[in-house]
């Protein structure tokens, strides 16, 4: 796998990520996700109204992969229904495990498919899924 290529896309993405790196006013969900073994730590905030994810933002620190994946996720998920979001999270997680169909993920995950290469760097999978698992937990727990 071309690591240089993967990283050049990640760096580009991170340089554009500033707009997603913020707390969300009126957030209905806020959840912390962390990777204890690496010290990556993010807080994801989500605002859901009438089953639509109106707004998302994140704060925290971590490696370039975890930060890029959080920002890409936010761009993809914003404006989607909770059900759509869950299905996209599922597809993304399968892509990172190397188990998703290429055509399907390029089509549905849009820019997030730039991270497909992480499936070839097993040690970094947990970085690429941190924000997504955090969102998944937040959505699954929203009624409790």
């Amino acid at each position: 796998m071309d690591l240089n290529n993967l990283y050049s896309q990640i760096i580009t993405e991170n340089s554009r990520a500033a707009h997603n790196r913020r707390p969300v006013p009126g957030a209905t969900l806020s959840l912390e996700g962390n990777n204890p073994s690496c010290g990556d730590d993010i807080v994801l905030q989500v605002k859901i109204e009438n089953g639509i994810i109106e707004d998302l933002g994140f704060v925290g620190t971590g490696c370039a992969i975890s930060q890029a994946s959080a920002s890409l996720m936010i761009d993809l998920i914003k404006g989607k229904t909770v059900e759509e979001a869950k299905s996209l999270v599922d597809l993304y997680l399968r892509m990172i495990k190397g188990e998703a169909d290429e055509k399907e993920y390029i089509d549905r995950l849009e820019d997030c498919s730039a991270l497909a290469g992480v499936s070839k760097v097993p040690a970094r999978v947990k970085c690429a899924v941190l924000a997504w698992h955090t969102l998944e937990d937040a959505l699954n727990n929203q009624n409790v």
Binding site: L3, Y7, C63, A64, A123
Partner: peptide, 13 residues
């Protein structure tokens, strides 16, 4: 300017 995990991944290559 580089997170250690990114550095270690690239150094591993």
């Amino acid at each position: 300017g580089v997170h250690p995990h990114d550095a270690a991944t690239i150094m591993d290559s």
